[in-house]
Design a protein around this nucleic acid. Structure first.
Lengths: 343, 343
DNA sequence: CTGAAAGCGCTTACAG
DNA sequence: CTGAAAGCGCTTACAG
């Protein structure tokens, strides 16, 4: 049906070997230039497309990368991850095979099996939030964990630098002159929440300040009423904080709602910083939310590049000493919700 | 490196032909039962995984489906589409190769080429909103357009039934007793917006009502201020509408904000219906938004099933007469923002 | 019931 | 510089 290398060779009257070499570009000094031209033209004319399956079989490796994701459906970051990954793969002439496991460990094991039967060059194993994951069986060494890590520190794993992100957010507030900074943290996050708290405390300590118990709460950031109540408690006390740093953007949106109910203007009366840079949500925040960017796109690009080239990209962060764990910076994005405290 | 069929055959002392038949399940009456057992056990013991590249080369078809998407990154529906597609593919023992074109026609052409060089069984071409698309070059016949359509009515194309969705939303309001229903439509949507308007008018006409000019506006639903102003205009007129149907959920959220500013309680003073069922946003609506579900998951499942089996699933909608165009129902999801009008 | 052989489309030593 | 041949791992007629 499709045009094969033999068709092209026959058309020109050369061997398939010559055609193969020319079309894959490795013919210098092995095929004369006029012949090479003729072969290229014939391939063009016949609309030849190389059969990647045959190539893969021959070379025991295909130009595909596996991308296993735990929960595409329910999370907004999956799109960023997949978009950056497919784009990078394409830039390297590779294709991305995406499998969603929905968090089922057996499905992950099966996915590894399916992918290896397709001779993928490597597998990105994407968690949907920063956490410890179990490595699927028979994963082999071409595996990179995206937005997560595992026990074995020598398994390549990429996570956001939560401490730095939270630190920079609060440092920004301190620099603006805030002295009483509130922090609304998440109660379910095992990994990110304590790290962000550490970042908050570090930034405050650098200014000789402390995180006041009256100014911090750990809540379920998916429980609307609970968040509202916690925010109201913090904002209605005497000597209320003049700035709020929130575990994520949706929490920040709720804080903004409560502030509005209390007649507090943002950023004049209260400064507000979120985390995630979840744009869909931020579009509805007026003024636009100052927040910390999660480095999903960076991590995805790094992962695919590393898998394709076989070596960690030089332009990324250095690994934690003695490990294959990489922390990716979370840049602060200053928008409209932060300002100096009221006089 | 990897265990091959020959390894398994050698282990048992049979031909690769026998092993192949047994392991692919088509050996009845061709290999004796004890031998078949021995082969299966050996395959298990050696952890044999079939090389799908070799199979694909041999059979000139692989167990992969191509999924081309225009704008994964910027749209919330991509996740639903991809999640449903990978899940369905897996249920049929197939893998999904995802390519993002970012709306670039050349990239789409290249994607078709890359996919066909991988011998995919078919290609889903997913638009990110209901609109007319250009079919990529050399697409062949194993192509299904998801959430879009093209000139040629014989090219398989799936779209949401916008008329029915909008109709059911407004019929719901009318049934609750509303007589003055406002409609905020989108100005950029070439396909969906007119269809939704038709649905609105149909539902009103069925109750002997009409869409009043004073109760409808066509706005840029991504321009926050414009939406707010239009909503305020409509809600502050004498004889204001008692219900609002919006082009999408984000518009509805803005209407809710304006209603709150005007001291209107939802749903007691004003009923509100959105469109999309964009859950990430709806989580922040209190009470929870009544809306119309976009059938992305249904369409994705239908597409993959059709591509794998080679025939349109019987349990889906019938095509528009004389075409290969399918309209998928958009179910109304009644939640907390609709109630009878105030007395 | 069973095995030897051909061939899918490619690339890579090898011999000229 | 050039071509004939082998072989990647599989399945499918074919002959016994």
């Amino acid at each position: 049906m499709a045009v094969t290398l033999a068709d092209v060779a026959r058309e020109v009257g050369v061997s398939t070997a010559a055609a193969s070499m020319v079309l894959s570009g490795r013919y210098r000094g092995r095929v004369s230039e006029p012949r090479a031209d003729a072969i290229r033209q014939a391939a063009d004319r016949l609309n030849y497309v190389r059969n990647e399956l045959a190539l893969g079989l021959r070379t025991a490796q295909s130009d595909t990368i596996g991308f296993i994701t735990q929960q595409v459906a329910s999370t907004p970051y999956a799109t960023t991850l997949i978009a950056a990954a497919t784009e990078t793969a394409r830039a390297y002439g590779h294709l991305l095979i995406v499998i969603e496991t929905d968090g089922d460990p057996d499905a992950a094991d099966a996915a590894i099996r399916d992918l290896s039967s397709h001779q993928v060059r490597g597998v990105a194993y994407a968690s949907m939030y920063h956490r410890r994951v179990r490595v699927p069986r028979h994963a082999g060494d071409g595996l990179i964990i995206l937005d997560g890590y595992t026990e074995d520190p020598h398994i390549c794993a990429l996570v956001p630098d939560e401490v730095q992100g939270a630190h920079d957010a609060v440092a920004h507030l301190v620099t603006l002159g805030h002295r009483r900074v509130a922090f609304l943290n998440d109660c379910d996050s095992v990994d990110a929440a304590p790290l962000r708290r550490r970042g908050v405390e570090m930034a405050l300590a650098e200014a000789g300040l402390a995180l006041l118990p009256s100014c911090t709460r750990t809540v379920n950031t998916r429980a609307y009423a609970e968040m509202k109540q916690a925010t109201r408690d913090i904002l209605t006390q005497p000597d209320r904080p003049t700035a709020f740093f929130c575990y994520n953007d949706s929490t920040a949106i709720v804080v903004a709602q409560v502030a509005a109910e209390l007649g507090l203007k943002i950023p004049d009366d209260l400064s507000l910083v979120g985390f995630d840079n979840f744009t869909t949500l931020i579009e509805f925040s007026v003024p636009s939310l100052t927040t910390v960017q999660l480095p999903h796109a960076d991590m995805a690009r790094w992962t695919i590049t590393s898998l394709v080239t076989g070596t960690p990209p030089a332009d990324g962060p250095a690994p934690d000493p003695g490990t294959a764990r990489y922390r990716f910076p979370c840049p602060l994005i200053v928008r409209g919700t932060t300002a100096p405290p009221p006089a």
